[in-house]
Amino acid sequence: MTALLEAPAAPPERVRSTRSWAAALGLLPFLGYMLVFLGGPLFFVISGAFSDPDGRPTAANVLASITEPQYRAAFLSSLVLSAVTAVIGAVFGTFLAQAVLIGRPDSPLRRIVATASGVLAYFGGVPLAFAFIAALGQTGLATVFLRGIGIDLYAGGFRIDSLTGLGLTYVYFQVPLMVILITPALEGLLPQWREAAENLGASAWTYWRHVAFPVLAPALGGATLVLFGNAFAAYATALALTSGSIPLLPTAIASALSGNVLANQQNVGLALGFDMVVVIAVVMVGYLFLQRRAARWSSR
């Protein structure tokens, strides 16, 4: 009888002291795996970036990677392309996600968009490039159709293998990714907030401006940064669409790695990889900063 009564009460003190240890152990497989198979390659990229071909430490590769004109051009176009497609993808993705959420929770539209987003977020590379060439290339279906109704894209200076064309193609996987990332945050907007705001005299616009947007801001910012990183990392699509005619960081890395220029280019390639990791790190710090800001009013 006494044992029964004591059982639940006795352990807590001990459990608490061992809990954080045991709990951390439970995360070990996951974090360990990430460390080995993501951290490992990153380690070799960084160590290679600061070594010469014989393994002696040097900063020359990294210096070259940020000073040589062709790499600076690649840097610039990569940054611009990633930033612009991240913002466009974030804005349109949010509108699309909200448009879908207005419907009933189990509506077919919602299921179609949710599942298609999962597939299309991974859609890239040669097939995506080809789909856009088939649609908007010189003889693409959409190009021909538009010409038929009097809009000549190519006479207006458009080319599918330009930076604009590439951006248009990137948005194709950016929007679905945004839908995936932002839907939970949009679902977190409680209906009574909108009703309370309306009741207090807010229009639809003022509700979004003063209530919904501040609530969403950290999630929107975080998701946009992820989109930036996603575009920054994309490689196969650009290569397939432009055959390397537009200099981008990932294509520069790949051609440096393939080593058909000079032997020590390999280490410059790794240095370019290091540069990308630095940019990504800045992005991640921004992401964490946004999360921290949200903590001021969020209960988590």
């Binding site: 409680l190 009574q192 907030w193 009703e195 309370a196 705001a197 009741n199 207090l200 003063h210 209530v211 501040p214 609530v215 009013w297 969020s298 209960s299």
Partner: peptide, 13 residues
């Protein structure tokens, strides 16, 4: 002026 069941305060304010 309406008072809701719960959780109707704007969390960012």
């Amino acid at each position: 002026g309406m008072v809701f069941q719960a959780y109707s305060l704007f969390p960012t304010m």
